[in-house]
Design a protein around this nucleic acid. Structure first.
Lengths: 200, 200
DNA sequence: TCAACCAGTCAACGGTGTTGACCGAGAGGC
DNA sequence: GCCTCTCGGTCAACACCGTTGACTGGTTGA
């Protein structure tokens, strides 16, 4: 008796064979989750998301398996960072810092805070490591000179994460009260020094 | 009617006027908390700490006020970092990285993970900012040349926290699998570049 | 002696993520 | 048209969390 079509009872929904009603509420849950995760980070509770979507909390789990899986689906790490990485390699350090610190892009801040808050979950860790490798290392390492190209890009990502940590999460006044242009110049050059030691 | 000596009922214990029995169990709770916080970070539950100490969970709160306060008391940020900071300023970058990445000091790793995990708590944020200012900025800024001395030290701390984040929390294989000596050299020089731009 | 106070226990509150039992409705096969 | 079966959804409950307040005993100081 193969149990391919009827896995016991709880039956995890497979995205495909869903009826229109199920697809609609599923979308409503995901939309509510995106909004609340952006507002409160991983602290947004499953029950609050369910209330926002006008649905029973159990249904959230039934549709997405777990809070962690729903979170991963809602927080996409993609963004307009590609254009920054594709620009001139000699000035990518300052451009990266300027991109993440721009005050008129609250989504960047929100996304970082949500991810940093949930970084203890294994799947989130994997996703972030994958993002580092497939976005940053893939874009920059081939364009570098010298040894340890991939490691140097990874360390540059570490520098970036440290700055965002102190500025957004830690909110250290020494950084938040500083002149943003000075931060871009100083920290951007430090990143640049790791990527292209000879220049600058 | 001044309520200086009798604040209603619950009476927060003031460390001073404690009977020997109270002092003993208080110490037992703190010892259990230190062990469990080191093992599991902030996820260690008050109930688990109480069980480990052979005590009722309510007593933990009665003695320390809250889980957060107990955590702050147990995770001290002090260490042997002072000696590293007091050494030659021209090579402090590499020495800092080497100090934190040394594999034979699991306490450094544990302490960082516990603090990073609890960084969303306001008092933990304040404590970490205070530590940055009083330990790192106070020790290094007066010995630097040029402008933005304090900001540059704070940004160097940001660099450090980013490296520890990627190495300990994120466990990015690009960093964990790399040759530690290369990481010390590359990242240490990047920090050094921020502190003493002219040298090296 | 007796009142005040400390040490400690107990049950409960409101919150969390998650599970399993249950029910109504719609779709497919005969 | 009926019957069956699966999907959509609700409900109550579980186990855990941090925290609170009421309560009991034992010790201490006046």
């Amino acid at each position: 008796m193969t149990k391919t079509s009827s896995p016991d009872r709880p039956a995890p929904p497979d995205e495909r064979h869903l009826r229109p009603a199920g697809r609609a509420t599923r979308a409503a849950i995901e939309e509510a989750a995106r909004r609340l995760f952006a507002e409160r980070g991983f602290d947004a509770s499953v029950r609050a998301i369910a209330t926002e979507a006008g649905v029973d909390p159990a249904l959230v789990i039934r549709h997405f398996g777990s809070k962690e899986a729903l979170f991963l689906r809602c927080v996409d790490t993609s963004g307009s960072i590609g254009a920054v990485l594709d620009g001139p390699i000699e000035t990518v350090g300052r451009r990266l810092v300027a991109y993440f610190l721009q005050p008129d892009r609250p989504l960047v801040r929100q996304r970082y805070l949500a991810l940093a808050q949930a970084a203890h979950l294994d799947q989130v860790k994997e996703e972030m490591n994958r993002h580092t490798a497939e976005t940053y290392v893939a874009a920059l390492a081939p364009r570098l000179d010298g040894a340890d190209r991939e490691l140097r890009v990874a360390l540059a990502v570490a520098q970036l994460s440290g700055l965002l940590n102190l500025a957004f999460r830690q909110e250290d006044p020494l950084v938040t009260d500083a002149d943003p242009d000075r931060v871009v110049a100083l920290y951007g050059d430090a990143i640049q020094h790791l990527l292209t030691p000879g220049l600058g």
